[in-house]
Every structure is written in C-alpha cells, then in structure tokens.
Design a protein around this nucleic acid. Structure first.
Length: 776
RNA sequence: GGGAGCAUAGCUCAGCUGGUUAGAGCACCUGCCUUACAAGCAGGGGGUCGCAGGUUCGACUCCUGCUGCUCCCACCA
C-alpha cells in the first residue's frame, strides 16, 4: 500500500466503481423490506452551501446504514426547480424582471438556468459520494410531475378541498403575486407612530397609525366595548382627515385599550386584523393599494405614488394642516416575503386555496402518529398548525411553475377543469374542450401557476411513480421547513391517501457561520463553498465532520475542525496498512487467545450499540462508539499487543499468530463496514485492495454488518483491566523519561480473577511494553 | 406574550432513564524518531458541571425559580 492515501485520485475512482456496478440501484424485486427515503429536492435558488452538505449527508448515511442491515433501500433524488425561487435566481443573475419579458422567453430562461444548476448540484452530490439511485431522479417542473401535480389538484377540487375565492390575500408587491402564510418572514422596521384627529361632532377623536397613507381606505373606527372613554361616541360618525368623508365608530373586543389612544382606524387593508374586521363586520372595501405597491390613481393627494413616498407625502400634508398631533419614532415588526425580503400587503383578488383550516385537529393528530427525530421538533409543527390563520393560497401570479388546469367561462365565470387525458396541460396554450353549464363555449385560461410547495408537497406520490412505497420510511430535512414542507405534505397525504406520507421524520440542524448567523447562499464565500471544500479536504473528511453535531442541533462551521477528520482518515489508512501487511497469508482459523477474544467481544458490543443509535438516527452517537473502538481499543491497545505475535510466530507459536490474524481480520472488516456509512470512499478502497478477495462482493457497500454474538461481560472486564495494566506500565516509562528501547525491569500484575487470561497474555504484554519479565 | 432548546476544561462538545476519583477532541506542558502512523505515540496540568433553592442515603443527571444565549410562533392599529 502507498504511504499516503491519495483521496484526489481514489474518491473519483470509487464513485466510478459504484456507478459501473450499479451498487446503489434500487430493484423492487430485490430481497429485504423496502426502506424509502423522501429526499428533499433542493430548490434551484443559488449554489448549495455547507448547510445543505451537512443535512443531506446525515440522511445519506442512514440510507447506507439501512442497506447494510439488509433493507432494500429506495433512495431517490429530486430537484425542486419550478417556482419563485428559480424565478428570483434568474432575475438576479440576468438582471431582468419576469414582467418585462414575453412569458415564454422567461420560462425558457428559467428552464435553462434550472438545468445548469441541476447539473452542478448533481455533480456536487456525486462528488460527496451520495448513494442515491440517480435513475430515480425527478424534477418538479417535468411533464410527468406537472401531470401528477395537476391530477392531484383536480382530486382536491373534486373532494372540495381546493377552491377559488375572491378575498383579501397576502400579496408581495415586489414579486407581484399572492403568497401563503408560510412564506412570511418578519423584520424589524423603523417607522413612525402618528396620532391624527378624526372629528366627531366638532370634537377631535385621536387615533394612532403607522400607515397614514391608507387613510383613504379607512372604513370605520373601532374602540373597545368596555372602554369608558369612548362609550359615548359609539355609533356616531367620524370625519376622515384630509378626505372629509364620514365613517362609523364601532366596537370590537380585539381593540387593545392600552395601545395608542385606544381608538383605531380600520382600513382595507393595513393588516390581518383589518381583514378580520372586514369579514366579521361586513365592511366596505375602499381600494388604496395596487398590486405593484403604488397607490391607486383615484386616491386624492397621493394617487400613483409608491407606498413609501405616499406615506411621507401624507405625513407632510397632515403636519402642514396641523393634523399631526404627535409623531413618534418606533421600531416594529413588519411582515415580509421570505423570497425577496420586501414588505407584504393585503390586497383582494381571486385566488385558489387548499382548505387547511377545517381539519386542523386531524393534522395535529397525524403529527402525533409520526416518529419525530428528535422528538421535540414536533413542537414546531404543533405551534404552526395551532396558529394557522389562512387557508393555503396556492395560486401565484408568476410564470415558471405548474399551470392550473383551469379555464373560466367567458359568460358566467364558472371554472372548467381539464380532463385527466389532457394532463399535463397549459391552459394558455390549449383550449378548453367542453362547454360550460351555462351553454357558453368561450373560455378564458387561468394564467396563474401553482405555489412551488403545491408540487413539492406530493413528493411521496412523485416517488411512487418511480416505484417507491407509500407511506415512505423516512423524510430528512432541516428544521426551518417544518411549517411548509412537513405540514403541506401531511395535508396532501391525508387528502389523497387518507394516511401518512412517511413513518419517520429526521430533522437536522443548521450550520451557522458564527453565533446565530445562518449561512445564506448569497453570503457564500468561495473558500467555504462545498465544491472547494471537497476538492481541498476530500468528501470523506467533510462527511466525517458532518456527523459531529447531535441530530437537530445547530453547529458552527470552522475549517480548523476538519483537521480532526483528516487525522482520522490518516489513522484508518495507517492501521489498515499495518494490518493488511500481516494478513496477506490469512486463511481463517480459530481465535484462541484471551486478548483476541476480548477484541472480538468489543467489536460485537459496538456493533450492537451503533445499530441501536443508528435506528434512532443518532449518527453522531453511533460514530462516537465506533471511534472509541477503533482508535483506542484497536489502534492504541490491541494492535500494539498483537504486533509481536504477528511478527514472530517462532517466538509466540504459529497457532497463536493465526488466532491474532483471525481476530484482526474480523475486527478490521467490521470496523470498515461500520465506517463505510461515514467515509464510503476510503473504506471501499481498502475493501477492494484486500478484503474483496475473501468476501467476494463487488463492493463493501453490498455487505451487511455482522450479527453480533452474545458478548461475555467477563471478556470485556478482562480487556478493561488489561488496558489499565498497560497504561500503568506506560506511565512508569513516561515518568522515568525512558525510551521505548530501554526495557522496563520486572513488572508484577495483580490479575485477580483473570489470572489465567493474564498468564496467557503476558508474553504479548511484555513485548508490547518492552518489559523484561511480567509476573502475574 | 406563548413555546422549545442550550448553558460542563481556554475553545468545540459527549455525558440517555440519578450511584464509585466528571469524559473526548483541539489548545497547553513533558517525554518518546517505537519495523502502521512525528499528519504519530505515551504521560500530564486544567472544571465549585450558569445561579439559588428543593427531592434523595446520594444530583451534572430529577423538580421549582432566576439569569444569559439561540430558535420557533404570536404581536406588529
């Protein structure tokens, strides 16, 4: 074997070997229970970062683990290429805006960009040694996925779970589309809290607002029914300042008495509460805000202005006319769109929704039936479901997505749906086939596309097309998309199948750059981008690093920590180099020596412990067990003890040497198999180099872990005592500053109950520690 | 405002259902070129386990309160 392990040459070779032999190919007919993983299809919204690597690698190791326990693993990959994330990327990269281009041209650009990134992503995952079956790869924008997505949408329509309505909806003025509650972020924004007077029967009634530009949208004032200050005003009319029209003064329990002046104006629409009041009090709609963030042209004083300019203008006017009683600088949280970071408005429009409010109790119940790893992540799901306010708006006034298979009757506006045979269909390109119930055969196509989550929420069904089982075994992802991907998928699964989408959820943490800062794609610095890290440090090193953190907990990335992983790879290489050198003539044989039996017992103990952790998705805890076995028991102690016996059979005996070989072979083979899930390249190379001739299988990854034998606790106790004795001898040497070459004088071991075993081992120990004579 | 998680050596963390002198890696100190590995090995120093109570024969571990940090959700006139 070479002195050093050359990962740059070997990692691609091993990947090629897996590919050539179809090592990870899924065969439905193969033996073993099917274990299916619902891989998160990454959105095409920029380059991948270390956080993706961290999260995906952990799930990937579970695939490898299950495979090596005899499961028939269905491990697909996908790309969520449709939707706003890709559109934003294209707009950003090319300096264009979708609305300025012909629809088809923009879609083509998106498709080309998605394809480019998908190749890049796929190359990255392959260079990491991801053991997916790439023939099971899907795209959410492909014709097959589109057809399925449309089909399932029609299923929801039929079941009464998808519907269209004209209603106030969350609206991003930047992306100019409706959005869903799940896509909201919040950000602190500087603002002013302005107190302005409404006149009631000649007396001023002060209200405070941060949105004075919406004054023209004011439809009423509210006070709390128990607020004694205002009881005498309830039911009277108040005059809107600057605009001079009257609105009623009403009461509502939701008014906070201690906020502002305790009286509040209700506009269409300043916030969520306005919407609730609009609905419960059946208020008028007065249009102020347009979909592009500008004020409607017919609004006096500020018509046509962008919202921020309009606000300044109105405040200045109020001030000039002595109507600004107080203006206080404040910082408050505002709702923003997660994709662009711009503030979100509420604007009425006709949109499609999926009913998520009716069955909330059911969704909580379903959450209880899923195994959450770690368990506390279910809290986030519950909090989200309990706090839902809107049905899920799934229509987006965008371009690169799955079209609604819907037209509207030109006469009566009733929707007409595509037939199953037509799918996938783009109503903008294909005419509606039928006639409307009203007799009309003129139709207008729906131009909106699905929310990207409306398609990615059916990944179990997409995978089913490729032969996957439903429910799937496990879904892995990081904790920030519980409210979207997890929730939506549970909803869809319940509606379409009446069951769960998967049995287990494996939730990983984030990789943070420093305290509290999430690594974002835009801040990706080149030294820490995954491709560079792999090229510099190797896939195995990064994979090993990625298993440091506990499942679900966030971790910090520090390139210095990769050194630990690199050290491990070197150690594994050197240990195998030594062992293989002494196993060239290995031909089986009995394990007779007590210390050899101890080593094997330790391996069996760790096999059992590691399995238990890995079935609980605790990859890091499992690795910790294996590390202790490999580094401390095998390298630091066992190899040193058995070394002399392997070198000098004439001194220790041929059978004794064979016993050592057999224990070493078993230990190393099982250690390599355990590490194979973490560092698949170097373990494969070592397998190919030596073990394959004995084991036969084309790849180490086609082997199964040994079934551990019942471990004799006496053997383990003996091993512990043996290590203590050796440590004591080493301490003596160290304290006397002795070289290895200087022999220690006679050493006496108080062996207690293990006298016979120590007696049988004392020659090994003497050679190992260079002691002249050991007395048991 | 509600909820969750975290707080252990200078740094990054492990210590699960309470039980002998609290562990690992990095860093630090000392020694060792030992026929796998100096990118290594051996030995060592270093912690009142965030604070205050409580339960217990016994608490890093369980309970209560507090402090600090992180996250989720809500508020956001």
């Amino acid at each position: 074997m070479e002195k050093r392990y050359d990962f740059k040459a070997i990692e691609p070779q091993m990947q090629q070997l897996w590919n050539d032999h179809g090592v990870y190919k899924f065969n439905k007919a193969a033996p073993g229970e099917v274990y299916a993983i619902d891989t998160p299809p990454p959105t095409v919204s920029g380059s991948l970062h270390i956080g993706h690597l961290f999260s995906y690698v952990q799930a990937e190791m579970i695939a490898r683990f299950r495979r090596m326990q005899g499961y028939n693993v269905f491990y697909p990959f996908g790309f969520d290429d449709n939707g706003l994330p890709t559109e934003r990327l294209v707009e950003r990269e090319q300096g264009i805006l979708a609305k300025d281009l012909p629809r088809s041209e923009f879609i083509e650009t998106c498709a080309a960009t998605a394809a480019k990134y998908e190749d890049e992503f796929k190359a990255l995952w392959q260079s990491l040694g991801v053991s997916a079956d790439w023939e099971l790869c899907y795209q959410t924008v492909s014709p097959q996925t589109m057809a399925l997505s449309q089909k399932l949408f029609l299923d929801l329509v039929q079941k009464g779970k998808a519907y269209a309505k004209e209603s106030p909806v969350l609206w991003c003025v930047e992306c100019q589309t409706s959005i869903a509650q799940a896509e909201l972020d919040s950000a602190d924004a500087a603002s002013t809290f302005n107190t302005i007077p409404f006149m009631v029967e000649g007396n001023p009634l002060h209200i405070a607002t941060t949105r004075p530009e919406l004054l023209f949208g004011c439809v009423c004032l509210f006070v709390h029914p128990d607020d004694a200050r205002y009881t005498h005003l309830v039911g009277k009319q108040a005059t809107v300042p600057l605009y001079g029209y009257d609105v009623p003064i009403l009461t509502d329990e939701k008014v906070a008495i201690d906020k502002g002046t305790g009286a509040v104006m209700c506009c269409t629409f300043g916030d969520q509460t306005d919407v609730e009041w609009y609905l419960t009090h059946k208020l008028d709609y007065r249009r102020v805000m347009m979909p592009n963030g500008h004020i409607a042209d017919d609004v006096p004083h500020i018509g046509g202005m962008y919202v921020t300019k309009a606000r300044k203008t109105i405040i200045a006017m109020l001030d000039e006319q002595g109507l600004l009683v107080k203006s206080e600088n404040i910082t408050h949280a505002v709702q923003t769109h997660e994709r662009c970071g711009k503030h979100v408005e509420i604007i009425p429009s006709r949109q499609w929704y999926i009913d998520v409010m009716t069955d909330r109790e059911k969704f909580l119940e379903l959450g209880d039936k899923i195994n959450w790893y770690p368990a506390n992540m279910q809290n986030r799901y519950n909090a989200w479901v309990e706090n839902l306010k809107w049905d899920w708006c799934i229509s987006r006034q965008r371009y690169f997505g799955v079209p609604f298979p819907v037209w509207y009757c030109a006469d009566c506006a009733a929707p007409a749906f595509a037939s199953a045979e037509q799918l996938p269909v783009n109503p903008l390109e294909t005419a509606c086939e039928g006639t409307c119930a009203c007799g009309c055969s003129n139709f207008t196509p729906e131009s909106a596309v699905f929310d990207t989550w409306a398609t990615s929420s059916i990944t179990p069904q997409i995978n089913e097309l490729a032969g996957g089982p439903v429910p799937m075994g496990m879904r892995p992802h990081a904790h920030e998309i519980i409210r979207t991907w997890t929730f939506y998928t549970i909803v869809r699964s319940w509606y379409h199948t009446g069951g769960l989408p998967w049995n287990d959820l494996m939730i990983s943490g984030f990789v943070l750059a420093k305290k509290g800062e999430k690594i974002s794609k835009s801040k990706n610095n080149s030294a820490n981008d995954p491709a560079t890290l792999i090229a510099t440090h190797s896939a195995d090193v990064l994979r090993y690093w990625a298993t440091n953190a506990r499942l679900g907990t966030d971790t910090f990335f520090d390139a210095d920590e990769l050194q630990i992983a690199r050290r491990f790879i070197t150690k594994l290489w050197n240990a195998c180099k030594f062992a293989i050198g002494h196993l060239e003539d290995y031909a089986g044989g009995d394990i007779t020596q007590p210390v050899d039996k101890w080593m094997v017992a330790r391996v069996d103990e760790v096999l059992a412990k590691a399995k238990k952790h890995l079935y609980d998705y605790e990859i890091g805890l499992a690795r910790h067990e294996i590390d202790t076995l490999f580094w401390h028991d095998l390298c630091d102690n066992y190899i040193e003890i058995v070394k002399d016996r392997l070198y000098y059979p004439e001194k220790h005996g041929e059978a004794e040497r064979k016993s050592g070989q057999a224990a070493l072979y078993y230990t190393l083979r099982e250690v390599l198999k355990m590490y194979a899930i973490y560092v698949p390249h170097i373990t494969e190379y070592l397998y190919q180099h030596f073990f394959k001739q004995h084991e036969g299988a084309e790849s180490i990854h086609l082997l199964q872990w040994a079934q551990p034998a019942e471990v004799d606790p006496q053997l383990l106790a003996f091993g512990e005592q043996l290590k203590e004795q050796i440590s004591a001898m080493r301490k003596v040497r160290s304290e006397q500053n002795l070289s290895r070459k200087d022999p220690l004088a006679n050493y006496s071991i108080d062996a207690g109950e293990f006298a016979a075993w120590f007696e049988a081992t004392k020659k090994d120990i003497a050679a190992c520690e260079n002691v002249q004579e050991i007395v048991v």
